[in-house]
Computed example of a mutant assay.
Amino acid sequence: MKNKPITEYTNEELINQEKNSKAITILLMVAIPLLFFSNLFLTFKHKFSALAVIPIALVPILIVNINKWKQLKKEKADRNL
């Protein structure tokens, strides 16, 4: 499935995409620190694990989601929705 440019979304698609992007971004904003601190705790309690890199690996995904959310909010504001 090929992604359409944001400017080609219908109003309903734009609202749904913005709502989904917001939910996913907020979920990642909560999950990454939780994973980081739980891995930090487990590292001090036991030893380093390969799973400790997961929060670090999720940060670029969070950045991409934040940028997409901003673009969707801007397009929504441009259309006065």
Rank of each mutant, 00 (worst) to 15 (best):
K76P: 06
N39T: 04
Y9K: 03
N80T: 11
F48P: 08
V64R: 15
N11K: 11
K68L: 14
I15S: 14
L51Y: 11
P60M: 01
F41C: 05
W69I: 00
L62C: 04
L34D: 05
P5Y: 12
K74Q: 14
T25G: 13
L62S: 05
I56H: 01
K74V: 14
I32E: 03
K19R: 02
M1S: 08
T10L: 05
T25H: 07
P60D: 01
V53Q: 12
T25K: 11
T25C: 07
S38F: 11
K76Y: 10
V53C: 13
P33G: 04
N39M: 05
E18P: 09
L58A: 00
V30C: 04
P5Q: 10
L62P: 02
A31F: 03
N65T: 07
I54P: 07
K19P: 01
L34T: 01
P55K: 02
E12W: 12
V64W: 15
P60F: 00
I54H: 02
D78N: 08
I26S: 03
I24L: 14
N80W: 07
L72D: 11
S21Y: 01
V30P: 00
W69S: 00
E75D: 09
L40K: 00
L42E: 07
L35T: 00
K4Q: 13
L14D: 03
P60W: 04
S21C: 02
A31P: 03
R79E: 08
A77W: 02
I54A: 05
V53E: 13
L14M: 01
W69V: 02
K19I: 02
K74C: 15
N67L: 14
T25Q: 08
V53W: 14
V53N: 13
A50Y: 13
P33R: 03
I66M: 10
K2Q: 11
A50Q: 14
I26A: 01
T25S: 10
S38G: 05
L28N: 12
P33L: 05
Q71R: 13
E18T: 10
K19Q: 03
S21G: 03
L72M: 09
P55H: 05
L28P: 10
E13H: 09
F48D: 08
I15Q: 13
W69N: 04
E75F: 08
A77M: 02
I32H: 06
T25F: 10
I61W: 15
L62I: 08
I24P: 04
F44E: 09
M29K: 04
I15Y: 13
N20F: 09
K70G: 13
Q71P: 12
Y9D: 01
E13D: 05
E75Q: 07
E8W: 14
K19W: 00
L72C: 09
N20M: 13
M1W: 06
